[in-house]
């Protein structure tokens, strides 16, 4: 999953020191479990060894969400095209990871499928371009939609159901340090029968959604309020209902082309 990344040299500064280590003891011999360690200290409860990689990803998300308060952290996917970023916020199940996974296989650059890091001073969004988390039915949807995408095998019975991780495209990984200027806030709304529709979304509702989906909105206080306000002012807000990724690609391409 991280083949496109460099390893951190021993003598460099690392943001976080994490490990996933197999638990010892009789119980774990019968039913092997592993645990996430943050800088040498166990965090979270142990999980079955098969979920180790997913646990690493969840653990890293926690590291960022709990320690990255130099940013306003919003629970949203972020993708970019020609210097303009689309922020896709939404509750779990609204289809943001699937939409994001689909679009990054068709020319959009991945910043993040889960954590939008908004720099309060510059108004730019940063991403880490880590693997995309796919859940349940999305796994097969993406497998069919992008047969060449590199994915882990499905891991069943996690707290989020069956999950698989997808490696981001090489171009996204190569550009991972480049932030992007937000241009659109698009609230995805997947429903199996929906016909594709991109409609302007109420700006006040978009504001509330971003604030609600932010992990550290309260920590930033007044500055956080002002930053979300500026973000909304700088973006077009839409709601996007869809049931098919091909439709999504077409509509998002038109959006990026400036037709909307």
């Amino acid at each position: 999953m991280y083949a496109g990344f460099d390893t951190c040299p021993e003598d460099a500064f690392a943001d976080f020191h994490v490990a996933v280590i197999r638990e010892s003891g009789l119980l774990n011999w019968m039913k092997p479990r592993a645990r996430f360690y943050f800088d040498g200290r166990p965090s979270f409860i142990p999980l079955p060894v098969s979920q180790s990689f997913a646990m690493l990803e969840w653990g890293l998300n926690w590291c960022v969400a709990a320690h990255g308060h130099q940013y306003l952290i919003i629970h949203a996917a972020v993708i970019e095209r020609e210097g303009r970023a689309a922020i896709l916020p939404g509750a779990p199940g609204a289809g943001k990871s699937t939409l994001c996974a689909g679009l990054i296989n068709r020319g959009w650059r991945l910043l993040s499928d889960e954590l939008a890091l908004l720099d309060l001073d510059s108004g730019l969004v940063c991403g880490m371009c880590r693997p995309v988390n796919l859940k349940n039915a999305s796994i097969d949807v993406i497998r069919r939609f992008a047969p060449h995408a590199v994915m882990t095998g499905p891991v069943p019975d996690t707290t989020k159901g069956t999950i698989a991780l997808m490696r981001p495209p090489e171009e996204s990984i190569a550009a991972r340090d480049a932030p992007a200027r937000p241009a659109w806030i698009i609230v995805p709304d997947y429903s199996p029968e929906a016909s594709p529709e991109l409609v302007p979304h109420d700006r006040a509702l978009a504001f509330m959604l971003l604030a609600e989906q932010s992990f550290n909105y309260d920590i930033h206080g007044k500055n956080g309020f002002a930053a979300v306000g500026r973000l909304i002012d700088a973006c077009h807000c839409y709601r996007f209902s869809y049931s098919n990724l091909e439709d999504a690609v077409r509509i998002f391409d038109r959006l990026a082309g400036g037709c909307e």
């Binding site: 320690h67 990255g68 130099q70 309260d218 930033h220």
Partner: peptide, 12 residues
């Protein structure tokens, strides 16, 4: 950035 993050948290 880690120092600034810690400062924000402490202010809050």
């Amino acid at each position: 950035s880690h120092l600034l993050s810690a400062l924000r948290m402490a202010d809050r």
